Amino acid sequence: MSGLINDSDEHRAIRESVRGIAKRYGGQYFLDRARSNGHIDELWGDLGDAGLLGVHLPEEYGGGGGGMAEAVVVVEELSAHGMPLLIWVISPAICGSILADHGSEEMKREWLPALADGSRKMAFGLTEPDAGSNSHDIKTTARRDGDGWVISGQKYYISAIDQSDAVLLIARDADHTTADRKALSIFVIPTDTPGLTFTQIPTSIVSPDKQFMVFLDEVRVGPEALVGTAGSGMRQVFSGLNPERILVGAICGGIGRYAVDRATDYARTRTVWSAPIGGHQGVAHPLAESHIDVEVSRLATKHAAELADQESDAVGEAANIAKFAASEAALRALDQAIQTHGGNGLSEEYGLSDLWFVTRLMRTAPVSREMVLNFVAQTSLGLPRSY
C-alpha cells in the first residue's frame, strides 16, 4: 500500500533500505523475541551498520545529517513490517536529540556516534510514580556535592533500561529550585553506577522493550554527567519531547499500515459462501475508513516532522496533533483488522493481536490523549486552562 505519502528520492532510498532489512527478519522475529523476553540485537546491529539509527543526527558525530523527516521514514517502515521499536524512539531519537542540542562537545563525541551505530543505547528517565509525565512535579532530586551531584528518587515506566548503557535522567535541581520556580537538570548516568537499580514492571505489552521501575539511592555523579546548564532542564528536555511525539505518530502510522495491509490481503483471499469476504461492504467499508484515517495521520506526522526540521514555533501543536491522530487511527485499524480475520485475528499465527497492547499504549504514552486535548484546547483554541 503506497498511500498518500509522496517520498522524495532520498526518502524512497531510506525506505527501501529499511524494507530490505525488515524483510530479512520479519515480524515473527520481533514477536518471538518479545514473547521470550529476548532482545533484537541482530536487527539493531544491522540497522546501525546501514546508518538507519542515526539518520537524524549530525554528520560530524556519526549521524546521517538528516532530521525528523528521515527518522519518521525509518520508524514508520519498521512498524509497517510488524516491528514497532520503542527503543528507536527512546535512544537515538529522544536522547540523541537532547544530547545533540545541549550536550557538551565531549559528551557528543562520546555518545552520539555510539547511539548512531547502535553499539550503545540510552534510556530516558522522566516519568515518576506520582507525577507521570508532569515534569513540573518531579520528586527525584539532584543536590550539589562538591563539584558533582547526589541524586535520589524513583522513576516509573522507564523503557529498555535493562539493555541500555546509560539513562538520560531528569531531576529536580535543589540548588536552583525556589518557591516560585521548579528548576530541572539533566544528567547522563551509566546504568552500572552504584545506587542505581531497577526492577521490571509486569505488563501485557508484547515487545522486546520492557518497562521498569528505577531507584536512585544517593547516586553520585561528577560534573561531566550534566547535560547543558544546571537548572535549565525544562527547556532542554523539549528537544526530545517533540521528536518523541512525532515518532510515536510514525510508529502508529506504520502499525496502521501493517494492520490494513494484513486485513485487505486476508479479505481478498478468504472465501465464505463462494465469494471473497472483501466483496461485502460490511467488510470493505470499515477497511476503507481505516485506510483513510491512517493516511491522514501519516500526513499529519510528515507535516510535524517538516516543522521540526524547520525549527518552527508551530511544531508543538503539530507534534501533539500527529501523535493523537495516529494513535487513534492505528488502534481503530488494528481492531478492524482483527475483526476482519474473525477468530484468526486472535491467533498468534496472524501477528495482529500481539500488537494490540503496544498500540493501545500509544494512546496513553508518551502523553495521554486527554493531555493532548488540553493542549489543543488551551494553546490552539485559546480556551481557559482546565488544570
Rank of each mutant, 00 (worst) to 15 (best):
I5L: 04
D7H: 08
D7E: 09
D7G: 12
D9W: 01
D9M: 09
R12I: 07
A13P: 06
R15E: 11
I21L: 05
R24P: 08
Y25H: 11
Q28Y: 05
S36T: 11
S36Y: 06
H39C: 14
H39K: 06
L43F: 07
G45F: 02
G51E: 07
G64W: 01
G66H: 01
G67A: 00
E70V: 05
E70S: 07
V73K: 01
G82E: 01
M83E: 03
L86M: 07
I87L: 07
A100P: 03
H102W: 13
H102D: 10
S104E: 04
E105P: 11
E105Q: 07
E110N: 08
W111R: 03
S119Q: 03
R120E: 07
G125W: 00
E128W: 03
P129F: 03
A131P: 09
I138M: 06
V150H: 06
V150G: 08
I151P: 10
Q154Y: 10
L169D: 04
A171P: 06
A171R: 02
R172M: 11
D180R: 00
A183V: 04
I186F: 05
D192W: 09
T193K: 00
L196E: 07
P202M: 02
I205C: 08
I205A: 08
D217T: 12
R220H: 12
G228S: 06
A230R: 02
Q236N: 13
S239C: 05
P243Y: 06
E244G: 08
R245H: 14
I246A: 10
A250E: 05
G253Y: 00
G253V: 05
G254D: 03
I255Y: 01
Y258Q: 07
R262C: 15
Y266I: 11
R268V: 14
I277E: 08
I277Q: 02
G282M: 01
G282R: 04
V283D: 04
H285K: 02
A288P: 06
H291L: 14
I292L: 09
A300Q: 05
A305N: 05
S312C: 05
N320D: 12
I321E: 11
A322G: 12
K323P: 13
F324I: 11
A329Y: 01
D335R: 00
H341S: 11
G342H: 06
Y350M: 14
G351C: 13
L352F: 08
D354A: 15
D354V: 15
L361F: 13
P366R: 00
P366S: 09
S368R: 00
E370V: 15
L373Q: 10
A377Y: 09
Q378C: 15
